[in-house]
Lab assay of single mutants.
Amino acid sequence: TTITITINGEELRIRGDHEEIHKILKAWEEDHNDEEIVRLIRELAER
Rank of each mutant, 00 (worst) to 15 (best):
K23I: 07
H18E: 11
K23F: 10
N8S: 05
D31K: 11
E36P: 02
N8T: 02
R42V: 04
E19P: 07
I3V: 11
R15M: 08
L40R: 10
N33W: 14
A45F: 09
K23G: 06
R39S: 05
H22A: 13
I14Y: 03
N33L: 14
R15I: 11
E46R: 15
G16T: 05
N33C: 09
I3Y: 07
N33F: 14
E43Q: 13
E10P: 00
T2V: 11
L25V: 05
I41E: 00
I41C: 02
I21A: 03
E43L: 15
G16W: 10
E11C: 14
A45I: 13
D34P: 11
E29W: 11
E19L: 10
E35Y: 08
I7E: 00
H18L: 12
R39M: 05
E30I: 14
H32S: 10
E36C: 03
T2Q: 08
I37H: 02
N8P: 01
R42T: 04
L12A: 01
L44P: 00
I7H: 02
H32I: 08
D34T: 08
I7R: 01
I21Q: 01
G16H: 03
E29V: 12
E10H: 11
E46M: 14
E19A: 11
E20M: 10
D34Q: 07
E36Q: 08
E30N: 13
R47N: 13
E29M: 14
E46L: 15
L25W: 09
G9C: 02
E29G: 11
L25M: 08
R47G: 10
E35G: 06
T4E: 03
G9H: 04
W28L: 11
L40S: 03
R39A: 07
D34W: 13
H18Q: 09
N8H: 07
I7P: 00
I14T: 01
R47Y: 12
R47F: 12
L12T: 02
A45W: 10
K23D: 04
E43F: 13
T1W: 12
G16V: 06
E11V: 15
T6C: 14
E10I: 15
I3T: 04
L40A: 05
D17I: 05
E10K: 15
L40M: 10
G16I: 07
G9T: 03
R15E: 06
R47H: 14
R39F: 06
R42W: 07
N33R: 06
N33T: 11
W28V: 03
I37V: 11
D17M: 08
I14W: 04
E20D: 09
R15A: 06
D31Q: 10
R15W: 12
I14R: 00
R13I: 11
E19H: 10
H18D: 08
H18N: 09
I7T: 01
R13H: 07
R42Q: 06
E20T: 11
K26P: 00
E19I: 08
N33H: 12
I7W: 08
I14C: 02
L44E: 02
I5M: 04
L25N: 01
R15Q: 07
K26M: 10
E46W: 12
R42A: 04
L25Q: 03
I14A: 02
L12I: 05
E35A: 12
H22Y: 15
I41L: 15
T2S: 09
E30F: 14
N33S: 08
R13P: 02
A27T: 06
E11G: 04
E29Q: 14
T4D: 03
T4Q: 05
T1A: 11
N8V: 03
L25P: 00
E46P: 01
D34Y: 12
H22Q: 08
K23M: 10
H22R: 12
H32P: 15
H18C: 12
R13Y: 09
E43V: 09
R39H: 04
I37R: 02
L12V: 04
L25I: 06
R42F: 05
E11K: 15
H32C: 02
E10D: 05
R39I: 04
E29F: 12
T6Q: 07
E19F: 13
D34M: 13
L12K: 01
R47T: 13
R13W: 14
K26Y: 07
E10F: 13
E36L: 09
A45S: 05
R15H: 10
I5T: 01
I3Q: 02
I14L: 13
T1P: 06
K23R: 14
G9Y: 03
D31N: 14
E30T: 13
E20V: 10
T2C: 07
N8K: 07
G16S: 06
E11P: 12
D17T: 14
L40K: 08
I5D: 00
H22L: 13
A45P: 01
E10L: 14
L12P: 00
E36F: 12
G9D: 03
T4I: 12
W28Y: 08
T6W: 15
E36A: 12
T2D: 07
D17C: 05
D34G: 10
E36H: 12
A45G: 03
I5H: 00
L25Y: 12
A27P: 00
E20P: 02
L40G: 01
R47A: 14
R15D: 04
E35Q: 10
I24G: 00
I3L: 13
A45Q: 06
R42N: 04
D31F: 09
I3R: 08
W28E: 00
T2H: 12
K26I: 06
R15F: 14
I24V: 05
V38P: 03
L44Y: 06
W28N: 01
H22S: 09
I24D: 00
I21M: 10
D17H: 10
T4V: 13
K26A: 09
H18S: 12
L40D: 01
R13S: 07
A45R: 05
E30G: 09
N33Q: 07
I14E: 00
R13L: 04
L44N: 02
L44F: 07
E19R: 08
E19C: 06
I37Q: 01
R42Y: 10
K26L: 08
D34I: 13
I24P: 00
N8W: 06
L40N: 02
A27Q: 10
G9M: 03
E29T: 13
G16E: 02
E35W: 11
E11N: 13
E43D: 06
E20R: 03
A27F: 07
I14F: 08
I24H: 01
G9Q: 03
E29P: 01
E30D: 10
E20Y: 11
H32R: 14
I37K: 02
E46F: 13
T2F: 15
E35L: 11
A27I: 10
E29I: 13
I24C: 02
R42K: 09
D17G: 07
L25A: 03
E43T: 10
E43N: 08
K26T: 06
E35P: 15
D31A: 09
D31M: 12
R13Q: 06
E46H: 10
R47I: 14
R39D: 03
W28D: 00
E46V: 14
E29K: 14
W28H: 03
R42G: 03
R13F: 11
K26N: 06
A27Y: 06
E36R: 12
G9S: 03
E11D: 05
T2L: 13
E35T: 09
N33D: 10
E29Y: 12
E35S: 09
I5F: 09
R39Q: 06
R42E: 04
E29N: 13
E11L: 15
A45Y: 07
A27C: 06
W28T: 01
N33K: 05
E36W: 13
G9N: 05
N8L: 06
T4H: 06
E43R: 15
I24T: 02
R39K: 09
E46K: 13
I37T: 07
G9L: 02
E46S: 11
E29R: 15
R47P: 07
A27K: 12
G16Y: 06
E11A: 15
E19T: 11
T2M: 14
I14Q: 00
V38W: 15
I21F: 04
G16R: 03
E36M: 09
H32Q: 13
T2A: 08
I5S: 00
E11Q: 15
R15K: 06
E11H: 14
T1F: 15
E19N: 09
E46D: 12
L25R: 05
E20I: 08
E30V: 13
E29L: 12
E36K: 08
L40I: 08
I14N: 00
I21E: 00
I5P: 00
I21S: 01
H22V: 10
E11W: 14
T1K: 13
E20N: 05
V38G: 05
E30Y: 14
V38R: 10
I41Y: 02
E11T: 15
T2K: 04
I14D: 00
R15S: 08
E43C: 14
V38N: 04
G16D: 03
E43Y: 12
N8C: 07
D17P: 10
T1C: 11
L12N: 01
I41M: 05
A45D: 04
T2R: 05
I5Y: 03
N33E: 09
I14V: 05
E10G: 05
T6S: 08
T2N: 05
K26Q: 08
E43S: 10
L12G: 00
D34C: 12
E30A: 15
T6L: 12
I14M: 04
A45V: 09
T4M: 10
K26D: 04
E30M: 14
E19G: 07
G16Q: 03
E20Q: 06
T4L: 10
E11S: 15
D34H: 06
D17S: 14
K23A: 12
K26F: 08
I21D: 01
E20W: 13
E30H: 12
H22P: 01
I37D: 00
E46Q: 11
I24Y: 04
K23W: 15
D31Y: 09
E30R: 15
H32Y: 09
E36Y: 13
K26G: 03
H18W: 13
D17E: 11
E46Y: 11
D31V: 05
E19M: 09
E20F: 13
L12R: 02
I14G: 01
H32N: 11
I14H: 01
H32T: 08
T2W: 15
A27V: 06
